[in-house]
Design a protein around this nucleic acid. Structure first.
Lengths: 178, 178
DNA sequence: ATGAATGCAAACTATTTGCATATAA
DNA sequence: TTATATGCAAATAGTTTGCATTCAT
């Protein structure tokens, strides 16, 4: 088993301390957004739903975030003129984006849901530091393989899965030692 | 890898369709409860908290359930004379039971938390059928081993973890075919 | 005796929904 | 033109909390 079997991706922030992609030096290109929008349009057409400016705006803001965010964060971000978007619409559209496969839901020990963009990213799992409330992403082909195998034997049709490990990250552990 | 590496345990009910252990033929013995209570007493003493009848009652009802249940389910179950227990106390005590390691929190796609007894049971993971809302438990030493390994390399101090696979169970898939 | 545990009701947070209006098709 | 999408505000659901009272130590 090689070292790169599980590689840390980016330590993303969860909880209420969220940053916009622009601040974290993330590179969410216009092409990526356009491509995702193309997918979403297809999804909407298939469903007989309408292609609206509001939906485009929400998609853009959701995908430009490279970190975990909450519905409430987007609501706040989009509560500015011109073209402010209402709370209800944000919630409704986030659900559509999840159904379209452009976002995925993540839950931690908080009451609320977090979302994270899935577009153009592989499946990955999370370590969640209960102290600094950051997510550290990792992927491990073997965990995925085992999950697949279990589902096969149980004849369980897998839609998606989630692996979250709760604990204390290295940085917080160090800080605690001092 | 042998066949019993991942064995189904009991398909337990989640969502709002919950049954009491007594109804499902589960065998939660008095000794088990007493033993768990002993642990809880120890936990309470360590924390300088008090040992009360109310806490004992909540522990008993929580542990007698072999399935996943919600705080609201316990609130309802304990809302009967004599010795009815209030909503606030149920919530407060469930948190203590989690801290004491006697229950564990599980979240699915719903807004609310589920709890399940951990006492006398090994670590296990969940398949969650989004159709019938049942949990199917399984354990897989390799998944656990990989999680441990990832944490070791990331120097992440693991407290606990959760693996949930969402999809459709065999029974629901069959039913859908017809 | 005294501080923690409890009951109660109200507060809070996240999310959903009904309805009038605006907008895409 | 007509049905869907949206904004708005109110409703809902789950959970938490302040405070007076009860109870364990």
């Amino acid at each position: 088993m090689s070292e790169q079997d599980h590689r840390p991706i980016t330590p993303n922030r969860g909880g209420s301390r969220l940053r916009h992609a622009a601040e974290t030096g993330g590179q969410v290109t216009g092409e990526l957004i356009d491509s995702a929008w193309g997918d979403f349009e297809g999804f909407l057409r298939t469903r007989g739903l309408r292609i609206t400016q509001t939906r485009r705006i929400i998609l853009e803001h959701a995908l430009r975030r490279r970190d975990h965010f909450r519905a409430a964060d987007l609501v706040e971000e989009l509560d500015v003129e011109p073209r402010r978007v209402s709370r209800g619409t944000v919630y409704r559209t986030l659900k559509l984006l999840v159904e379209a496969g452009l976002l995925r839901e993540v839950r931690d020990t908080d009451v609320h849901v977090h979302y994270e963009p899935t577009f153009g990213r592989g499946e990955h799992e999370h370590l969640f530091c209960v102290e600094c409330r950051r997510f550290i992403e990792f992927s491990d082909p073997q965990i995925l393989a085992r999950i697949r195998e279990v589902c096969r034997r149980q004849r369980f049709q897998r839609h998606m899965h989630r692996v979250v490990v709760f604990g204390r990250c290295e940085r917080c552990a160090r800080r605690a030692q001092r």
